[in-house]
Amino acid sequence: MPSPRTVDMASTDGRLERRKFLDMLLATGFVSTILAFVYPVWRYLIPPATGEPTIASVVAAKASELKPNSGVIFKFGGKPGILVRTPEGELRAFSAICTHLDCTVQYKGDTSQLWCACHNGIYDLGGNNVAGPPPRPLEKFVVNLRGEPGNEDVVVSRA
């Protein structure tokens, strides 16, 4: 780094010592800051374990796991959804958040309805509020099957 112009003609031993120390300090500083930049970038480049952002759709369950006339709660973003197989075998998915006071609804096998335990709100299998306090139907999601026949994933996405 030193160029001929910067050579100090009047340098004594002490000055040389100090200059050497300063250069070493500078080199240490440069190397450590460069490490501090490279390390986060390197970690950033490593693909994260969760794979990819897929909040618009989610695999709710295996199609084979869900028997007719039953339902299962799944996580959709930070909110619960409910996947339902009707007694006729059709798959449907709704937001599991009751439109009354945000409790989580559940499948009620004996009447084939969606039921909110908090205040006895009842929805039919079309998600429509049919009894109790809920003011609106449940939000409806789109259901698709993906994968090999007999072993399909149920993919739920926002309409």
């Binding site: 910067t6 100090d8 300063l22 300090l25 500078l26 240490t28 500083g29 450590s32 800051t33 501090a36």
Partner: peptide, 23 residues
């Protein structure tokens, strides 16, 4: 990292001072 940066800044400032004396 701020510590490392501070180290560089101080060392650079000293270095510049030293260099300017010669030029």
């Amino acid at each position: 990292s701020l510590g490392a940066i501070l180290l560089v800044v101080v060392a650079l400032a000293l270095k510049i001072k030293q260099m300017d004396r010669g030029t």
